[in-house]
């Protein structure tokens, strides 16, 4: 397949997954607002911090409030990672490879793009419902990708993009709780602590499965579940295994071996999780572990680019001479 097409499909699914996860971040806070005892304020600033876009946010909005954070993460076109920007980027990528994806996928992307654009132009009355809609739209898209595309190379690039994005975002959801929500040692194990962990699990759609597996909500087990579970589809370990499978399906290299640096790096990180216990993570510190993980994941993204996409010459910019075919004949 064309390198350009592979790249666009990879980013299409990454961006849509990103939009879904931003909706999930916001959802954590809405759930907390409902569950927190009165007098406890929800920390909106934390939400922006975990997305890594705190500086541009504070420069433009000055203060983190419910309104400014929702606006920034949902509709701000200046924020490249807002839901609107992500959905638009997913659609732009899809648009450039329309002939390589199914029309069902393309129409679904269009539908949600127009829906989000429409929501951006008016006041958001029921944000929770809207975020739910974004999530469901993403699930529908993933379902369509699975059921209307052949499971060949383009599909593996879509799955690779999605799995890596999801691994990154699950690590960030966990980080909200661990790095920012954790108020003091005294709160650990209190009902408040449990409320917060429950919200984290919920926003990863993980609460029910977690309960079946572990029963009581305990920080150690939540970390174990969201980082190391090999079977839960939003767990980091699961995502990396998926990504690893797809990467090897693309190149035809048997799993467990490698022929390029993308396979090598991803294989290393996957192996690290294959052989890690939750106690190892706790020893390093959850936040530190996640930080290190994200750096490695970014490195994998870079090597994927170098291995598969970078053979492409520099894109012509829009400003240069365009042919007259632009006009209708």
């Amino acid at each position: 397949m064309l390198s350009r097409v592979a790249q666009s499909i990879y980013w299409m699914s990454r961006y849509f997954e990103r939009a879904e996860n931003v909706a999930r971040f916001l959802d954590v806070n809405f759930r907390l607002m409902l569950d927190l005892p009165s007098g406890m304020a929800v920390q909106w600033e934390a939400l922006v911090r975990i997305t890594g876009d705190y500086e541009p946010f504070i420069k433009h909005y000055k203060r983190a409030t419910r309104e400014t954070v929702i606006q920034f993460l949902t509709f701000d076109t200046e924020n490249p990672n807002s839901i609107l920007s992500s959905v638009r980027a997913a659609r732009e990528n899809a648009r450039s490879v329309r002939e390589s994806i199914s029309s069902e996928m393309w129409e679904q992307l269009n539908r949600i793009y127009f829906r989000v654009g429409d929501a951006a132009s008016r006041h958001l009355d029921a944000p929770e419902e809207f975020f739910e809609e974004v999530r469901l739209a993403s699930h529908l898209f993933i379902g369509l990708t699975d059921t209307t595309m052949s499971h060949n190379e383009p599909w593996h690039f879509a799955r690779l993009g999605q799995a890596l994005e999801r691994a990154d975002k699950t690590s960030r959801i966990l980080d909200v709780k661990y790095f920012i929500l954790l108020p003091s040692v005294a709160d650990v194990g209190t009902p408040l602590d449990e409320i917060q962990w429950t919200a984290v699990l919920r926003s990863a759609s993980a609460l029910q499965i977690y309960r079946q597996q572990y029963g009581r909500v305990s920080p150690l087990r939540v970390v174990e579940f969201l980082v190391l579970d090999p079977e839960f589809p939003r767990a980091i370990h699961f995502c990396l295994r998926r990504a690893d499978e797809s990467l090897h399906a693309i190149s035809g290299t048997p799993q467990g071996t490698f022929r390029n640096s993308a396979e090598q790096r991803l294989g290393q990180l996957r192996a690290e999780l294959d052989f890690t216990r939750v106690s190892d993570i706790m020893r390093i510190g959850v936040h530190e572990f996640i930080d290190d993980f994200q750096v490695k994941l970014n490195g994998i993204g870079t090597t994927i680019h170098e291995t598969f996409f970078a053979t492409r010459p520099i894109q012509p910019s829009q400003s240069q001479v365009l042919p007259k075919a632009d006009r209708e004949r």
Partner: peptide, 24 residues
């Protein structure tokens, strides 16, 4: 960015062939 881009991708898709740009 071409205004007839929809048509280009549509015809490629309908014929089941690859749509390419000069850089490809």
């Amino acid at each position: 960015y071409n205004s007839a881009y929809f048509e280009h991708s549509f015809l490629a898709q309908q014929m089941g062939v690859q749509l390419v740009e000069g850089g490809d």
